[in-house]
Simulated scan of single mutants.
Amino acid sequence: VVLQAVPYLQAGTISLGVLAVGTEYADGQIHTTLRCVPDRLAVPAAKAVAYLAWAAGTAVTALAVGLLTARIALATRDVPVVTDGVPWDVVGAAAHLTLVGLLGLALAALLRAVVSALVVTLSLVLVVSPVLDAITPHARYLPDRAGALLYLPDPERVLTPATGLLVLLGWVVVIAGGAVAAFRRRDA
């Protein structure tokens, strides 16, 4: 029950990632940031670390509350709840949410705009991915589909959770690498 809400929770973590970087460009705060910390590698690294800490905590909290709510609801209906250790699917879902939001952060740094980064990232995961999934099996290599393997099994068993994680990380690394390279070269 809780894991079915993860695709919709992506919008929150993506928004968090985009706003963490994009708002600095919107109001010119990036100039002050670079005056205080002129190192062009330290700034994006610090933003990424701060985002990861906040987003991981937010994702874990949201999923834990959802899991607790589902267990309480099931218990009130006398449905047996199986608890056999750590729910690794929920941990995978939290990792997925955090990394998809990191993708939004990287796109915001690359595009230097809140609206365009939100439109691109949210369109990718909420519109393009479901449409392409209905058309082609290659949609499994999109970041949200590959990352979803961390909490949902692949019925066709083409990708494992580990390879899905690698595909998602590949998307993040490529876009973040482009964002860092652009950040180092262009004016604030």
Rank of each mutant, 00 (worst) to 15 (best):
V86D: 12
V86H: 07
P87G: 03
P87Y: 08
W88L: 14
D89A: 15
D89H: 12
V90W: 11
V90P: 05
V91Q: 08
G92E: 07
G92T: 12
A94E: 05
A94P: 06
A94F: 04
A94T: 11
A95P: 02
A95G: 07
L97I: 01
L97P: 03
T98F: 00
T98A: 03
L99N: 04
V100H: 00
V100M: 06
L102S: 04
L102Y: 00
L103A: 09
L103E: 01
G104N: 05
A106R: 03
A106L: 07
L107P: 09
A109G: 09
L110M: 07
L110G: 02
L110N: 00
L111K: 00
L111W: 00
R112F: 04
R112D: 10
V114M: 01
V114T: 07
V115Q: 10
V115T: 04
V115A: 03
S116M: 05
A117Q: 08
A117S: 08
L118G: 03
V120R: 00
V120T: 00
V120F: 00
T121Y: 05
T121K: 02
T121M: 01
L122C: 04
L124F: 02
L124N: 02
L126V: 06
V128L: 14
S129Y: 08
P130I: 04
V131I: 12
V131Q: 08
L132A: 14
L132D: 10
L132P: 15
A134I: 09
I135F: 10
I135Q: 06
I135Y: 09
P137A: 04
A139M: 05
A139R: 12
A139E: 08
A139S: 11
R140S: 09
L142C: 12
P143Y: 01
R145K: 13
R145V: 09
A146H: 10
A148R: 06
L149A: 08
L150E: 13
L150D: 09
L150F: 06
Y151D: 10
Y151P: 14
L152Q: 11
L152M: 03
L152F: 03
P153K: 01
P153F: 05
E156N: 11
E156C: 07
R157T: 11
R157E: 13
R157N: 13
R157G: 13
R157W: 15
V158L: 12
V158F: 15
V158D: 13
V158I: 15
L159M: 12
T160N: 08
T160G: 10
P161K: 12
T163E: 11
G164N: 05
L166Q: 12
L166G: 14
L166P: 12
L166A: 15
V167D: 15
V167L: 13
V167E: 14
L169F: 09
G170Q: 14
V172N: 08
V172Y: 07
V173H: 03
V173T: 08
V174G: 10
V174Q: 12
I175M: 03
A176Y: 04
A176R: 02
